[in-house]
Amino acid sequence: MSRIGKQVIKHDQVQIVQQDNVLKVKGKKGDLTLCLPSHVKIQQNGNQLQVIAESQWQGLYRSLIDSMVKGVTVGFEKKLLLVGVGYRAQLMENDLVLYVGFSHPITIKAREGIQFELENPTTIVIKGIDKQLVGRVAASIRALREPEVYKGKGIRYAYESIRLKAGKAGKASK
């Protein structure tokens, strides 16, 4: 049986309602829904929640529900860094405009549930209550100009480190 799946989910300041196979989580930042398969059951005891399912699905659904509870109370964020000469970002209303070495700026429309913030022109913060959506938006922005391995230019996560390769000059000295 799954060790993660056995753990209870403690939820304070969160309202959890289950109707048929739909689980709704409401908190101060918003609300999220999750469709549960028929073999996944939820047991509530006060402010604790227990997921009961087949062993292969128990840990997955426990983690999904825990992420929903954290999302509606605290929220999630990802930081991206723009590295390169002339690389910068701007906010136009709710949309993000990127200047990352192309002949034209790239405009990214803010989806519902996603907010963009700029700490400075080269640091983008993506915030939202849905962990999966925040990660997907951050990955799609990073995919526009992935970090290259010779100079390190591109869009990278704040925690990511890039190992640079030696160019032709580095190989010639061997």
Rank of each mutant, 00 (worst) to 15 (best):
34 L>G: 06
145 R>G: 02
47 N>V: 03
48 Q>V: 00
170 G>D: 11
96 L>C: 00
71 G>W: 02
26 K>T: 15
68 M>H: 04
48 Q>N: 07
119 E>K: 15
101 G>E: 02
84 G>N: 09
155 I>C: 02
36 L>T: 06
163 R>S: 14
161 S>I: 12
98 L>P: 04
41 K>Y: 07
88 R>K: 13
39 H>G: 10
114 I>C: 05
27 G>I: 09
100 V>K: 03
118 L>S: 10
103 S>M: 09
100 V>L: 10
163 R>C: 13
37 P>G: 10
52 I>W: 01
103 S>E: 05
86 G>I: 07
78 K>F: 00
89 A>S: 13
72 V>P: 03
166 A>K: 15
83 V>M: 08
42 I>M: 03
104 H>G: 02
68 M>I: 06
87 Y>W: 07
42 I>V: 13
134 V>A: 04
115 Q>P: 02
152 G>Y: 00
153 K>E: 08
85 V>W: 11
54 E>A: 15
159 Y>R: 14
57 W>Y: 15
77 E>Q: 14
39 H>S: 15
161 S>H: 13
131 K>W: 04
101 G>Q: 04
67 S>C: 12
40 V>E: 00
167 G>V: 14
85 V>F: 12
81 L>S: 09
93 E>A: 14
127 K>H: 12
71 G>A: 05
79 K>G: 15
86 G>L: 07
168 K>M: 14
112 E>W: 03
147 P>N: 02
82 L>K: 05
137 V>P: 02
100 V>F: 02
128 G>K: 06
26 K>F: 14
108 I>W: 00
35 C>Y: 03
34 L>A: 06
160 E>S: 08
32 L>E: 08
67 S>D: 12
58 Q>R: 14
143 A>F: 03
160 E>I: 08
77 E>G: 09
38 S>V: 14
46 G>S: 07
30 G>N: 10
125 V>I: 13
97 V>T: 01
143 A>Y: 02
82 L>A: 07
58 Q>T: 05
110 A>I: 03
108 I>V: 14
115 Q>K: 10
131 K>A: 08
112 E>N: 13
93 E>Q: 11
112 E>V: 11
108 I>S: 04
160 E>R: 11
98 L>M: 00
139 A>W: 01
151 K>N: 10
84 G>W: 04
30 G>P: 11
100 V>I: 14
52 I>Y: 00
106 I>W: 01
130 D>L: 04
77 E>R: 12
57 W>T: 13
129 I>S: 00
135 G>T: 02
122 T>S: 13
91 L>W: 03
158 A>M: 06
122 T>G: 13
81 L>H: 09
40 V>H: 03
43 Q>A: 02
